[in-house]
Write a protein that binds this DNA or RNA. Structure first.
Lengths: 203, 203
DNA sequence: CCTACTTTTGACCAACTGGTTAAACCATTT
DNA sequence: AAATGGTTTAACCAGTTGGTCAAAAGTAGG
């Protein structure tokens, strides 16, 4: 009912994503997903045979939103500083538009870590390339010498974590929803600034 | 059986924490917790009436490990840079000793955000104090002017996130367990260095 | 209108889950 | 050794859950 009934299969996927995100895999009920999609529960099993397969369909769809954008940036021939800026911007914008995407992915991490890693590999994300670039630019003196692992981890941490911890941050720092949106908007520049100023040589 | 049967109540709590962490609240089964503790399922209900109450007991115990350490640092009369160093060190050491603590707390965030925020308040964490200190030191020119919200968020993000995303990071960057432990150890200095060098005035 | 096909449904089921209960067990005190 | 009171258990229960199935409803072509 919520979604147009033009395409049942698609509206199931939408409802499933909604419910799985809020409740997690174990907390989600097939009946609830069916209700949300405005259909009979048996119809879920008609389109996606099992709960597992339904989840997997949702999961793959979600990853297809995340991966392509990040990959194209990582592989583009621009300096590290620019990549940091672009990734911050793209990542935060993506998560701002799909606020529970981070929570959904991390639900899956604790449920089935292996599968996510495999999807990463299949997506063609090659960590070696960015590592090479970072060590190269460090040797050239463009940036301070730093382990690629830490730089990337710092970047992703600062972009993603606020969305996972959103309610805690809001509560702790006394923000309302508008404040939080503003806060997230600011991070588009704060994160690159933090990383770049810590990476700029000549102190 | 795994734990000493000297204190049944305590061994239940240990097993419950183990299972809740791995499976989440909805995924955890009372029978599994009982098995893990080597006791009858009815005994769980004898000590902790319901699954909810058992979870709450585990949750409070977990928070009692986290909060006191952080609070004492935040309220101690030392400069911001030192606080950053001490919090990084304490936080990472804490999470290194209790690797699934972050995942446990995160599970609870998505299950019941409100309760966690309330616990934060009750624990007496006062964000106003640290905010005041940061703006003061910024005015004095000791650190670059920065919004306290972003600084704290950056700090916590970089400390906690790697533990939540551990399997993904390991997979993506091709680390084995030993590598990862080394990586985490390095972050005790990498995180303060990143933040402090971005906060040090006079470029 | 009939036939063949896909989509949708209500009724149903076996397995599982959190929780209960009455009885057994065990350590102390009397 | 009997009584007491906390601890532990096996058996059980009512409600829920993922999943099935046969039949109904819709759809298109001949």
């Amino acid at each position: 009912m919520t979604d147009s009934d033009i395409n049942t299969e698609k509206s199931i996927l939408l409802s499933a994503r909604r419910i799985f995100t809020i409740k997690g895999f174990d907390g989600a009920r097939m009946q609830e997903i069916a209700d949300d999609a405005g259909i009979n529960k048996a119809l879920l099993h008609y389109y996606y045979r099992t709960k597992d397969k339904l989840f997997e369909a949702v999961f793959k769809e979600v990853l297809n939103v995340i991966f392509p954008k990040i990959i194209s940036i990582l592989q583009s021939p621009i300096p590290v500083f620019e990549k940091i800026e672009k990734i911050s911007l793209t990542y935060i914008e993506l998560l701002k538009e799909n606020p529970d995407l981070a929570i959904f992915v991390f639900h899956e991490i604790s449920r089935n870590p292996q599968r996510l890693v495999e999807n990463f590999r299949n997506a063609g994300i090659d960590f070696g390339i960015i590592r090479k670039q970072i060590t190269l630019e460090a040797k050239q003196g463009v940036i301070v010498s730093v382990k690629a692992e830490h730089l990337i981890t710092n970047l992703i941490s600062m972009c993603v974590f606020p969305f996972i911890a959103k309610p805690v941050l809001k509560g702790m720092m006394g923000m309302n929803e508008e404040d939080f949106q503003q806060f997230i908007e600011e991070r588009k520049t704060v994160i690159p600034h933090t990383l770049i100023s810590s990476l700029t040589p000549n102190k």
